[in-house]
Design a protein around this nucleic acid. Structure first.
Lengths: 337, 337
DNA sequence: GCCAAGCACTATACCGGTTTAGTGTCAATC
DNA sequence: GATTGACACTAAACCGGTATAGTGCTTGGC
């Protein structure tokens, strides 16, 4: 059966398409009685607006885009993204906006996708994650004029609207936690070195360690389980290994825990471990992991909100999330004497 | 700057919109010279078809829908879905079809979403995951006439096209592996009891255990870390606990491992553990987990392919994936004497 | 030399909405 | 009693594509 259109409603109500459109959109131009009759008919025959027709008419796609381009093997185990998506959707559902989601091979493919989506008017704007130091996506998005919100540090996005977490505060919290427990030599296994997150965290960690008078080193990894395990193994084989390690995500932390256990290093007796980003992963391993907890769902919601605001003409400005809080579990303790 | 339309091309080429449309769509009706000129101009000004206009004209949305309605906390840690999406996207990208992805609160919300997407012509078809025994989505999709492919057992979907894995073979493989190691009392921690997967696996496991003459019990859980840990704890506290456990997903297996370790039960010396669905999670914990490996990316690609075929008018029929193979790692061994 | 056929292209309708300009009716105003 | 204005509505254009009917010109067949 054909899906009903406003022409069907118009015919039944004995008015024109225009009158129906007015009634359905709460526009003036129809009497209360006619409006009620039209709404009644629309309800009865189960009319819903054809998104293509509406998009064509008002020039809006009614959809946002989100692309992720980390390697597929990694993505799967990262709760962060899905949490973020849940948050994004919670805002978009109310705004009757859909989300186009894609996993891209690399940054170049991601840029191509933006060009296509924008060129074909498939999206009204995009959300950008994993902002790099010299990110090729930013100038392209600006050149195209795509409304975009970057999920990352305010200074990162060269003029795009941002929503950011307080990476500095997180780093300081962990350093202080380790220092208070008595650790004097700590390490930090990071994500990709050219991510803004990484730079922010590394800088703050170094400064805070200096301030409280302990040794700290950041070693680069890549957010993957393999990377986390390798970095851990190398750190623990040093002549003077660290007594505590902070990992830039939960996956590397869990993987680092496994690597330490394989080397016969007891956690937390011989090594304390903390994860940046809390998730079910941190809770289910043994020992459970101390982690920086932060409401990623709300983060996603705020990003989506900012993009909606941007499109409605207001300037949302750069938003800051509350600082992450440390959830202490079994994996951190005083270092062995 | 306004995005170019075929009218712009037509003007520059000194022909009508129709001629341009013919040229761009490889339709007869224009001379080779004119066609070349039009393509050249389109290329130059960076024309791309407006998806809304095309959708309105030919009645296709150019997008598929995928909804997931498991609890958000769980979703994040499940690599399976993202792997599936990567596979889906790989097929869709080539077909210039977008994917609308949403996380729904519950089955009812999911059904509402289908009604909206379909009513508004936002999607041309949907992919259905997590098929239940008496699944309320199926009759709705059939009533609406939405082209749909169910990712699950062939008999599950009441007439929808399906793409399925061989759950029976997987169950038999694991039972045989445990039996060969010498286990005589095994357990199976399942996902939601009303999922078709669960029924298939439970039945095959019971039959195969009987065939090889060992004891087997399936206990229901819910795919979550908490559920897996609780089921494990209860099993290990029995008077005669199992010496091997199969978990219906990787997350519960990892969580079960943690629970066993917490009870002081050594894996694999006192307890063997296997996971259904392999992923990075299985590799990164210590001991690493024996798991049923299966190409989820290909699975997703096949499902997307089936839906594309369905829409192009052919009847893809029910597709079966290759049986999963067992990847043996550190977590399974002969039981303690 | 006339008619038919084929070709290259134009004009226009159409998809299903939104929007703008215009029209007829009625009550209020002077 | 004529004028004004508000109101309720209609007619039609428009968004950017696709598809169909039609037109003028060339070519071929007999």
């Amino acid at each position: 059966m054909r899906r009903p259109t406003i022409a069907d409603i118009a015919q039944r109500a004995g008015v024109t398409k225009a009158a129906v459109s007015f009634a359905l959109n709460d526009q003036p131009g129809v009497s209360p009685a006619t409006r009620a009759r039209i709404l009644q008919i629309a309800q009865e025959i189960g009319w819903q607006p054809n998104s293509a027709a509406r998009a064509l008419s008002d020039g809006r796609a009614g959809a946002f885009g989100l692309v992720i381009d980390r390697p597929a093997g990694f993505l799967g185990a990262e709760p962060w993204f899905i949490q973020l998506m849940v948050g994004i959707q919670s805002e978009l559902a109310a705004a009757h906006t859909a989300l186009l989601f894609t996993v891209a091979e690399d940054k170049q493919a991601e840029i191509e996708l933006y060009r296509r989506w924008w060129g074909q008017r498939r999206v009204d704007g995009v959300l950008v994650v994993d902002v790099r130091l010299d990110d090729a996506r930013i100038p392209v998005l600006k050149e195209l004029g795509v409304p975009a919100v970057a999920i990352g540090p305010a200074q990162s996005a060269g003029g795009l609207v941002t929503v950011s977490t307080d990476d500095g505060a997180g780093a300081r919290t962990v350093v202080q936690h380790f220092a208070r427990l008595g650790h004097e030599r700590i390490a930090h296994v990071t994500g990709m070195a050219d991510l803004w997150h990484t730079r922010e965290r590394t800088g703050a960690l170094r400064d805070e360690a200096r301030a409280v008078g302990i040794e700290a080193v950041s070693v680069p990894a890549d957010y993957t389980a393999e990377g986390g395990a390798q970095a851990t193994t190398r750190l623990l084989r040093r002549r003077t290994p660290p007594t505590a390690i902070l990992y830039d995500n939960d996956l590397m932390a869990v993987s680092g825990l496994g690597a330490a256990q394989r080397l016969g290093v007891d956690v937390p007796d011989q090594l304390s471990i903390a994860a940046w980003e809390d998730s079910v992963l941190c809770r289910l391993v043994h020992p459970s992991l101390t982690a920086l907890t932060h409401d990623v769902v709300a983060y996603g919601a705020h990003a989506a909100r900012s993009l909606l605001d941007l499109l409605s003409g207001s300037s949302p400005g750069d938003q800051a999330e509350p600082a992450p809080v440390l959830t202490v579990r079994e994996s951190t303790a005083a270092p062995a004497a």
